[in-house]
Nucleic acid binder design. Structure first.
Lengths: 145, 145
DNA sequence: TTTATTTAGTTGCATATACAACAAAAGTTT
DNA sequence: AAACTTTTGTTGTATATGCAACTAAATAAA
């Protein structure tokens, strides 16, 4: 089972200096908190983000959604499709300039979820603490800036 | 297209106070940096994490891997399977106590990737700045603690 | 020691995500 | 106006991920 050679780079590397790994780990911890609170609503954070972002504007061009959430076009197409099928959004417009509208069903749905979403956010904030929350804002600001 | 009612909670909510959304956005930005640098190696960050973590220990019980990377058991099973199929790891042991070993092929592979991984990490660090990097460490520390 | 419980791994199912290739529409150049 | 370029949306393909249900093995309780 032993390796035939020695691997210096590998032996001396520290996987935990990886920025992507740190963020991945962080999102897994936080996602679990949100999933727990949102479970009864049968909604994911990705879906809730769409509901809240589009809902707040009442409607958004599909092309804007990807820009706002930094999602690839095909991801937006398919994430929306599932929710259109469920009646939370409708799509209007021609082939290349689609506009997505939230429906009353979608708006009611997101309103029913918001209290639990707030609770999840509160739990996450408590875990982060005041300083942790500010730190996260700084990270985001640096990355988006 | 207009909504039939008004939705107070929805109109007044700020989607961007969401901790999960902030982290999701952050990871998308950082992932893109790593994908760009790792593209030529045809490897993802998830795979590279497995290679580095297991490789550094030479071997790890499968059950440990999920604990270290905070991944669900089934995710570990399948992420490993793809890489075992490619010959980067081997699996030894009985039905419920598996141990995963890195192979020479896997160790060579990860060593060939490390320089570009370092470059990606450097680019991400530059974007974050010294303060942003410390902020990320604080976030992770708070969430894991 | 037998029984009950916990731990470990797998498989079915569903969502989320990106890239490449394609088609169609919109915008720009000439 | 015609030709070229960019933007937008979709579909094929692949990886990543979690939950539920199941099996099997290990551990604890009786």
């Amino acid at each position: 089972m032993a390796l035939k050679k020695s691997y210096d780079l590998l032996e001396n590397v520290d996987p935990w200096i990886c920025i992507a790994s740190k963020l991945s780990l962080s999102i897994r911890v936080v996602s679990a908190i949100y999933r727990k609170h949102l479970k009864a609503h049968n909604v994911t954070m990705s879906q809730l983000s769409l509901l809240m972002v589009i809902g707040k504007h009442k409607s958004l061009p599909q092309s804007e959604i990807g820009k706002i959430l930094k999602l690839e076009r095909s991801t937006v197409t398919r994430d929306l499709k599932r929710m259109i099928d469920q009646g939370y959004f409708v799509k209007k417009g021609d082939k290349t300039r689609q506009v997505i509208y939230i429906t009353d069903k979608g708006a009611s749905y997101v309103e029913s979820i918001i209290p639990d979403w707030r609770a999840a956010t509160q739990e996450a904030k408590t875990k982060l603490g005041e300083d942790g929350e500010q730190a996260l804002d700084l990270v985001l600001h640096k990355l988006m800036g």
